[in-house]
């Protein structure tokens, strides 16, 4: 457990000192949200209606930024090999790195979402709903992405392949995230139903993502 928290803290510290991932993802999030009104027009009624969907799509794409470095940086300088020879099970190692990565990239997206909601004229309830669903849903995105990151860790142009690999797998999270956010504002379905499905997806993705990435890293090391 001590090694686990140490690894989480190490990764967060590296991200904080070197920068990169989190900040870039956040900037990308902002840019995507800014671009959409240019494409569909400045009609505030329309924007406020599709705002939750815009924020969710933008957040999904923004998690891809920096994902390729999740294992690659450690693979390049050899610290990944060192970690893998340690006594911590590989899946736990992935879990620790994933949690740290989420805290640096996913969590800021959820925190920034209500703020960007202002640009899209979201109602306060909708802002709250987008914040809560992103808070619960971004771990799923991070851990599904972790599988792709582990698979492409040794590739030089991994980032391009990564997006093609993981986006189809992220579709269920997107569906339930957006429908939960939409259900909070109104509609026929109660908020609870899609929200609980989203929670379930998130928990399941953390397990499958950790195991899948561990498998990928183990086989890549052979």
């Amino acid at each position: 457990m001590k090694a686990f928290t140490a690894l989480v803290r190490r990764d967060i510290r590296i991200a904080a000192r070197i920068g990169g991932g989190g900040g870039t993802g956040l900037a990308f999030f902002l840019i995507l949200v800014t671009i959409v009104p240019f494409a569909i027009g400045p009609d505030l009624n329309l924007l406020s209606r599709i705002g939750p969907a815009i924020l969710w799509i933008a957040a999904t794409l923004a998690t891809l930024i920096g994902l390729d470095r999740l294992f690659q940086a450690d693979e390049e300088d050899g610290s990944l090999d060192l970690l893998m020879t340690g006594s911590m099970p590989l899946a736990m190692l992935v879990l620790a790195k994933g949690i740290a990565h989420w805290a640096v990239t996913g969590l800021p997206l959820a925190l920034a979402a209500p703020l960007l909601g202002l640009l899209l004229a979201l109602e306060p309830e909708a802002m709250g709903a987008v914040f809560v669903t992103l808070l619960v849903g971004t771990p799923a995105l991070t851990f599904i992405g972790a599988v792709g990151a582990a698979l492409t860790a040794s590739l030089r142009r991994g980032g391009l392949v990564l997006a093609v690999l993981v986006l189809p797998l992220m579709i269920p999270v997107l569906i339930f995230g957006v429908s939960a956010a939409a259900a909070a504002v109104g509609g026929t379905v109660p908020f609870r139903t899609p929200f609980l499905a989203l929670c379930g997806l998130s928990l399941g993705s953390i397990v499958i993502g950790s195991l899948g990435s561990a498998l990928a890293l183990a086989f890549a090391g052979e």
Binding site: V147, L165, L169, P172, S179, G212, A220
Partner: peptide
């Protein structure tokens, strides 16, 4: 081959989930 095998299996686990969630609408 090994990398694709991992991806294929993760995708295989995901197919029922995708099917279920897409049935949502």
């Amino acid at each position: 081959g090994r990398a694709v095998a991992v991806l294929t299996l993760v995708g295989f686990v995901n197919i029922p989930i995708v099917k279920f969630s897409v049935d949502w609408w």
